[in-house]
């Protein structure tokens, strides 16, 4: 049994020290327990505060593992062997426990259903703050705020399992937002949702970045969304970081896309098809808006 008397009243939010990077990953190699092959191999990258980073790559490339590294779940929860350094919001994940990191990094997982485990939406969103020992009035305030950001007012007393997939995933986002993190890590939040649900979730993610300046690391296969909103794309392949570039440079590079089995945005696919038929497209569009312009110009030129 834990000794209550020795507990501080509330887990303090560690001050981020001299933070020039929101995420600073240096030479990270990580192997899960009881496995031979490392899941991640010498990964290095830095992300400044406020950036929207998309992480792409085929299945079992190590994307989830990289997400878990950022809030200390790897290696603290899974065990295993780790080398290198991960500093998130100025905090070294080797030195700080997961609850401390949870106040800076919010992790949202793929399967909406199995990451919700409370009886009502209200208790679900309050769970993190309660664990951190915040006073009830503050919890209430934070929960209201998080539910407003995710457009979930009025659903407080619903059972999470009775909600739609899109609503469930928004509850999952609200749960981490209540702890007011600086960085949001989302591991394929929309891969199990219908188009409408994905749209709602992605809209909120984009707004958290644009309006509140939250740093975002988003794992997804929805490259159309990435092309529209991300500042930067990382490509992970078999545990290696193989590309770190702007969305435009990644999505217009056909060899790279094919080599790492990444499906480009639909407009890129169309453009690649046009190019292969000999249509002289001089500027590659990556979003629908751009495509409309480019194709209008082509039309004008009589192609």
């Amino acid at each position: 049994m834990i000794l209550i008397a020795s507990h501080p009243p509330r887990l303090p939010k560690e001050k981020s020290v001299s933070m020039s990077w929101m995420i600073d990953v240096a030479h990270v190699t990580y192997t899960y327990p009881n496995t031979e092959r490392p899941a991640l191999e010498s990964i290095s990258f830095q992300v400044p505060p406020g950036q929207f980073v998309a992480l792409l790559g085929p299945t079992s490339a190590g994307k989830s593992t990289l997400c878990y590294c950022l809030n200390g779940v790897v290696p603290r929860l899974f065990g295993g062997e780790m080398k290198g350094k991960v500093v998130v919001a100025g905090l070294d994940t080797y030195e700080h426990e997961i609850p401390v990191l949870a106040q800076h990094v919010g992790l949202v997982l793929q399967n909406a259903r199995s990451q919700l485990f409370n009886v009502t939406v209200l208790s679900e969103v309050a769970f993190g703050c309660e664990n951190l020992g915040m006073p009830p009035e503050e919890i209430r305030q934070r929960v209201t705020e998080a539910l407003a950001l995710t457009e979930l007012h009025g659903l407080e007393d619903r059972q999470p399992s009775t909600l739609s997939g899109g609503q469930q995933q928004r509850v999952a986002i609200a749960c981490v937002l209540a702890m007011r993190p600086d960085l949001l890590v989302l591991d394929e939040p929309t891969s199990e949702l219908d188009p409408l649900g994905s749209e709602q979730v992605m809209k909120i993610v984009a707004r958290l970045n644009r309006e509140l300046g939250k740093t975002i690391l988003l794992v997804t296969h929805d490259t159309d969304f990435v092309a529209r909103f991300a500042d930067r794309v990382l490509v992970l392949y078999q545990g290696h970081l193989v590309e770190d570039n702007t969305p435009r440079n990644v999505f217009t590079n056909q060899t790279l896309l094919q080599q790492y089995r990444i499906r480009p945005p639909q407009v890129c696919e169309i453009t690649f098809e046009l190019l292969s038929r000999g249509t002289p497209v001089t500027q590659m569009p990556i979003t629908i808006d751009e495509a409309v312009e480019v194709f209008k110009r082509l039309e004008k030129d009589g192609q």
């Binding site: 240096a26 030479h27 190699t29 327990p33 490392p38 191999e41 010498s42 290696p75 603290r76 929860l77 899974f78 065990g79 295993g80 062997e81 780790m82 080398k83 290198g84 350094k85 080797y94």
Partner: peptide, 21 residues
Amino acid sequence: ERSTTQNTIDQPSRRWDVKGR
């Protein structure tokens, strides 16, 4: 190949025990 890339930084790898059980 792996060990050569790892030697680029001089830090021993650390073994972690699982927690919270």
